[in-house]
Nucleic acid binder design. Structure first.
Length: 153
DNA sequence: GCCAACGTTGGC
DNA sequence: GCCAACGTTGGC
């Protein structure tokens, strides 16, 4: 069992979009970073906990709780020339980009990035590291517990 | 819109 | 394999 923080731009897919999606689940399309891909491909398991994070928006922060809902499979957008995530170098017989489905669990209050930084319990969170740009980062069990039991209301 | 930080590309 | 140039991320 692992825990994760996954960034999504609310303009593209917000926590409300996830809650109202068919089956309350969405394929995590568009990851084009090998480290983030490898987390999904190699380490994630169905049922892993996910902090759903809103990024590149007016109020960046944790917006809800979700869970990993599928085993890894090829991201279909890599083969779609009309998609912004199209990757001409990826071939169907050897897909380069893999994703998982993520399912809604619950909405939380918006826990702002600045508030996460205030808590000594969270200072080693990967997402808070200087210069971090990874869209998927591991969350420790202690960090998960602190955020879901103390901060999420 | 700015820009720091980082990842990728490609010439050599 | 090195590394400069370039593109992207994402908070502010």
């Amino acid at each position: 069992m692992h825990y994760w923080l996954m960034k999504s731009e609310p303009d593209e897919a917000s926590i409300d979009d996830l809650a109202t999606a068919t089956g309350q689940a969405l394929p995590w399309t568009g990851v084009r970073n090998y480290q983030a891909r490898n987390f999904m491909r190699d380490i994630m398991r169905i049922g892993d906990g996910v902090l759903f994070y809103h990024s590149s928006c007016a109020e960046p922060g944790v917006a809800g709780i979700a869970e990993v809902a599928s085993t890894p499979y090829p991201d279909p957008t890599q083969f779609d020339p009309a998609s912004p995530y199209f990757d001409p170098k990826s071939r169907p017989e050897a897909p380069r980009w893999t994703l998982v489905d993520v399912r809604f669990k619950k909405k939380t209050r918006l826990i702002p990035l600045g508030e996460l930084r205030e808590h000594p319990e969270l200072t080693s969170m990967r997402v808070l590291a200087k210069g971090n740009r990874l869209s998927i980062t591991p969350v420790s069990t202690d960090e998960w517990r602190f955020i879901t039991t103390r901060l999420a209301r």
